[in-house]
């Protein structure tokens, strides 16, 4: 009796929490496809708002995707050798370096953006180009890439594996390509998904760095909330969800896979 009561309580709490999180989301999504928000869903279902958002903000959506991709490429190019170096030379110096790379996580995005503006704000061409936002995103997402690869690399005896490859006649670049990269793959994948997801959703930094001609998805979202009809803002949220939810799910899957290898 007591036991089932406790179970019941547990279930109620869980469901309430879920409802608390889900209902606003569902409401918002519903609003995005409702013909007239004030009359409610009975006024009919329409995709009008979604198309309107597309017309108004397609550029933002493409910019976000492009930024996420560029950010992924850059963090991969910097992150893989960095993680490899840290994994191959463990010691206090590597620890310090790892913390140093992770510093942007602890500094609020706004402060980081301010620092970037102070440093590069006067370089007009750079300030107004999308690469300026990219720099901010790379700073913010790099630690995730490095740590995710490092976790996988640190879990195996990389030094001995490379020595084994060397004894079989593999030169240093071959060892890196044939042994290090394939074995780091789960970490790379998990890191890549994290980077893309974070880059698409990043607001703090981007809001500070953006110009009127360079709005990313979340910045556009804030913009539409501030200046548009509620239906359009809601339709915007819907589009955002459609893009981010599959990424989040893939990220969950990839990082649990990487975790399994790291343990």
């Amino acid at each position: 009796m007591i036991k089932s009561k406790a179970k019941l309580l547990q279930l109620t709490v869980t469901l309430t929490a879920c409802a608390f999180l889900f209902i606003p989301t569902v409401m918002s999504v519903m609003a995005g496809v409702t013909a007239n928000y004030f009359k409610g869903i009975s006024s009919g279902v329409t995709l009008k708002w979604v198309f309107q958002v597309w017309e108004l903000y397609a550029d933002s959506i493409f910019l976000s995707l492009w930024l996420a991709l560029a950010c992924l490429v850059v963090t991969f190019i910097i992150g893989l050798p960095a993680a490899y170096g840290l994994a191959r030379h463990p010691g206090w110096f590597s620890r310090v370096l790892e913390e140093f790379i992770s510093l942007p996580l602890a500094v609020p995005g706004l402060a980081l953006a301010l620092a970037l503006l102070q440093l590069y704000g006067t370089m007009k061409g750079f300030r107004t180009s999308w690469t300026f936002i990219l720099v901010g995103h790379v700073l913010y997402t790099l630690p995730f890439m490095v740590r995710s690869i490092l976790a996988v690399l640190a879990a195996m005896d990389l030094k001995t594996l490379e020595e084994a490859a060397a004894s079989l006649g593999a030169s240093p670049p071959r060892r890196f390509l044939n042994i290090v990269v394939p074995n780091a793959m789960p970490g790379i994948l998990a890191g890549a998904l994290t980077v893309v997801t974070l880059s698409i959703g990043e607001f703090n930094l981007t809001w500070m760095l953006h110009t009127p001609y360079l709005k990313t998805l979340p910045v556009g979202l804030a913009d539409s909330y501030a200046s548009m009809r509620l239906e359009i803002a809601s339709a915007y949220t819907l589009i955002f969800f459609i893009m981010i939810v599959p990424l989040l799910m893939a990220m969950q899957w990839a990082s649990s896979r990487a975790q399994r290898i790291a343990n």
Binding site: M156, A164, A165, S167, G169, I179, N183
Partner: peptide
Amino acid sequence: QQVEDRKVGMVFQSYALFPN
């Protein structure tokens, strides 16, 4: 001579087989 040029066969204590 570098290890990769020596043409030696080595069996490591942990075997160090390539997991990939």
